[in-house]
Write a protein that binds this DNA or RNA. Structure first.
Lengths: 252, 252
DNA sequence: CTTGACATTGACGTTGCGTCAACCTCTACC
DNA sequence: GGTAGAGGTTGACGCAACGTCAATGTCAAG
């Protein structure tokens, strides 16, 4: 007693294309192949298909299903592994939903997209979490509010200053000069002044950055490759860190 | 002032491959192409890339991002649509996680996979929800318990009876006989007896199915294509339904 | 001139089938 | 025996968003 491919498809609620696919990848072979090339399936094949479909509904991939059916993996193990997957996916979705909701609220409030407040190709809002973690939520909120209060012209000015400073850092790093040298220390001085221009942060305000903040920022450049990218790679970031540390030692 | 593809990749935290892909699909064109074929990007391109990456982090697809950037869709609209997507995905994951957890518990409890309790290539547990919705949770639970208590031999017997009955129904439907005819009514009688053999359901037990249950089952065959598939397609299911309704009218 | 870093254009692989396309085969009816 | 019509077969492309070779040209530095 056997059935054609369509019979099986209808019985199981799937399609003949799927069955031919399972045949192609060796997941479910027909029990018999007619002289005309037709595929025929018996009860055993049907039973196997049922198990495949059940595991598929649970979200397992076809290779994982094959492993289970071949007895190379126990059902419970495969499902536990899969469960971790699902939970991680769910967390990711949670976070993404939160981010999308926040963005929508901002748009509705008339705020411009954070991305437009780009800072020399370097969106300072991208590092919101790190900034908050290191310097507190107030620091980020104040800094963000200040930044948004600036005119486009002012922003352009900051941007240009930051960019020029970055280029000079990179040039200095490539030139292989010493972090203790006058040139490097002059750059650190400019970095210090630049930071002082941003009020509301631990580094902003008339008194300028504290020693701790300034050296910490240098460490950050090295620790985070995204920051380091702005300073000519790892070696460049290390050069910047050393120069900043030396400056802090001498002057703060 | 422009940058090479690697510069941009590092600044934005993505890869050159991605940038070339965005060029290929027209999402982000370089601002300039050198005589050597090299891609160069300026500040405007960088700004556009920032927006692309932000929307991508929120999970939007590249075509959707393109629509937003071309001004064909408002940010808020695109994000709201996307939010629905995300919520639906989350619900799906919730259900799947529940199903996987349940299955694992059953496996740990030593119960066999429901799929193995196959019913003529027709897993009666697949329709748990529908059954519960129509006939109550007790009905499903009792029926399920009864079914699991049967020996493999008994199950095979039921299976064969069900299969034979199904084949005869299909043959009758194809033969184009009348639902009121004696042959059709004899089949309905067999269906009635077969149902009576399953205690604990609204249709099982000495007294047999009620009129309501019996006609309702016929409707179910037509309404749900998965049931209908067992009876030779839509037309076949309608024939079965009519014959069952006539039987119920006459005898219940 | 050589070397190494960086650039280019293909083109395949990934996941699970849907969807043609071109071409047999079986069953039923006239 | 001819002709539909339903159903079967084997390719092969398409999808999402790039990762990953492969083969080859280009640029800056020693």
């Amino acid at each position: 007693m056997d059935w054609s491919i369509q019979d099986i498809a209808r019985l199981s609620g799937t399609t003949s294309r799927t069955l031919r696919h399972y045949d192609d990848i060796g997941l479910l072979k027909p029990s018999r192949i007619g002289g005309n090339g037709y595929r025929y399936y018996d009860e055993d094949a049907l039973a196997r298909l049922q198990r495949v479909l059940l595991l598929r509904e649970l979200g397992l991939g076809l290779p994982a299903i094959a492993d289970v059916l071949e007895g190379q993996t126990r059902h419970a193990d495969a499902l536990l592994t899969h469960l971790h997957w699902l939970r991680k996916e769910q967390e990711r979705l949670d976070r993404q939903i939160g981010a999308v909701e926040t963005t929508i609220r901002k748009l509705e409030g008339g705020e411009r997209l954070m991305a437009e407040e780009m800072f020399d190709g370097f969106d300072h809002t991208r590092y919101k979490d790190e900034v908050e973690e290191r310097w507190g939520k107030d620091a980020y909120a104040t800094s963000d509010a200040w930044w948004r209060s600036q005119t486009a012209e002012q922003k352009a000015g900051w941007k240009a200053a930051m960019q020029k400073l970055g280029e000079d850092w990179i040039a200095a790093a490539k030139a292989g000069i010493d972090p203790d040298s006058d040139e490097a220390q002059a750059l650190a001085q400019r970095q210090f002044e630049w930071l002082r221009g941003i009020p509301g942060t631990p580094g902003g305000g008339a008194s300028g950055p504290t020693k701790e903040y300034f050296t910490g920022l240098g460490e950050l450049y090295v620790a985070d490759p995204r920051f380091g990218a702005n300073y000519g790679g790892q070696a460049g970031a290390e050069f910047v860190r050393d120069a900043m540390a030396e400056y802090a030692d001498r002057n703060l």
